[in-house]
Amino acid sequence: MSTTRIVVIAKAPQPGRVKTRLIPALGAEGAAALAARMLACTLAVAFEAAGAADTADPALGVVELCASPAPGDPAWQGVVVPAGLRWSAQGEGDLGARMAGAARRVLAGGERVLLIGTDCPALDAACLRTAAEALDEVEAVIVPSFDGGYVLLGLRRFDPSLFEGIAWSTSTVAAATRVRLDALAWSYQVLPALQDIDVPADLVHLPSAG
C-alpha cells in the first residue's frame, strides 16, 4: 500500500502578507499572529495523524510544508516547526499551479497526497486519517468548507484539470472541482464540511487559545 504524504500549503506569517481579509478586524500584526498560530496548530495535527498511523497501519507518512517564500528565506526566520518536517518551495503561479506542482511531484514519487492549508482549526488528526483511508477505495477525497471552497483535497492520481481555471478563494471552488472529477470519471468521496477562518465573521469559530 502506498503511503500518503500530508502537504501543508502555507505562507510565512508576515504582517500584511497573510490573512489580509482579517486585517480590518485584527490589524496586520494580529492577522499575522493568528496565521502563525494556525500554522503551528496545523503542523501539530498533521504530525499527530502521521504518528498515530505509524502505530497501526502506515497509511500516513511524511509531513511536508510547501512554503512561500521558499525555505531558507528570512521570512521563515523564527518560525518554529516540528522536528522531522520536510520543506519544499511552492514555486510560481497562482494557487492552482502551486498546488498542482506539489501534487504532481508527490504522486510521481509513488505516494498519495493530502493537500491542506492552514485556515481550518477544525481539521483534526481523525479527519486526516479518515481522508487517507478513503484513498484506499477512491481516487480522490474532498473536505469542503462551508464557504464553498475546500480545506482538503486528497489524490492518488494526478490530472491538471483539477487545478486549472478554478476561481480560487470563491464559493465555487469545491463545486468546480467536483465537476472536474465527474468529467474525469474518477471515484471520489466527499467528507463532512468544516469551517475555515477567512473573514472577520469567521472569527467566532476560532477555538480558545487556552
Results as ranks from 00 to 15, higher is better:
residue 2 S to D: 09
residue 4 T to V: 12
residue 7 V to P: 01
residue 9 I to S: 10
residue 10 A to E: 09
residue 13 P to K: 05
residue 17 R to K: 14
residue 18 V to N: 03
residue 19 K to E: 11
residue 21 R to V: 01
residue 23 I to L: 04
residue 28 A to W: 01
residue 29 E to Q: 15
residue 30 G to L: 07
residue 31 A to S: 15
residue 31 A to M: 09
residue 33 A to G: 04
residue 34 L to F: 12
residue 35 A to W: 00
residue 36 A to F: 03
residue 36 A to I: 02
residue 37 R to S: 07
residue 37 R to M: 01
residue 43 L to T: 11
residue 45 V to K: 07
residue 57 D to Q: 07
residue 59 A to C: 13
residue 62 V to H: 14
residue 62 V to M: 11
residue 74 P to L: 00
residue 79 V to L: 05
residue 80 V to P: 01
residue 82 P to S: 12
residue 86 R to G: 03
residue 87 W to D: 00
residue 87 W to F: 09
residue 88 S to I: 00
residue 89 A to C: 08
residue 90 Q to P: 00
residue 93 G to K: 05
residue 94 D to Y: 01
residue 97 A to Y: 02
residue 98 R to E: 00
residue 100 A to H: 11
residue 104 R to L: 14
residue 106 V to N: 04
residue 107 L to C: 12
residue 107 L to E: 14
residue 108 A to L: 08
residue 108 A to Q: 14
residue 108 A to I: 04
residue 108 A to Y: 02
residue 110 G to N: 13
residue 115 L to Q: 05
residue 116 I to N: 06
residue 117 G to C: 03
residue 123 L to R: 06
residue 125 A to W: 02
residue 129 R to Q: 14
residue 132 A to W: 03
residue 132 A to F: 03
residue 136 D to Y: 07
residue 136 D to L: 06
residue 138 V to Y: 06
residue 143 V to N: 09
residue 145 S to P: 05
residue 146 F to E: 12
residue 149 G to L: 06
residue 152 L to F: 10
residue 152 L to G: 04
residue 153 L to H: 10
residue 153 L to E: 05
residue 157 R to M: 05
residue 157 R to P: 03
residue 161 S to N: 04
residue 162 L to G: 08
residue 174 A to G: 01
residue 175 A to R: 15
residue 175 A to D: 09
residue 177 T to G: 06
residue 179 V to A: 15
residue 179 V to W: 13
residue 181 L to C: 11
residue 182 D to C: 08
residue 184 L to H: 14
residue 187 S to H: 08
residue 188 Y to R: 09
residue 188 Y to G: 05
residue 194 L to P: 07
residue 195 Q to H: 14
residue 195 Q to T: 11
residue 197 I to K: 11
residue 202 D to W: 05
residue 206 L to D: 09
residue 207 P to W: 15
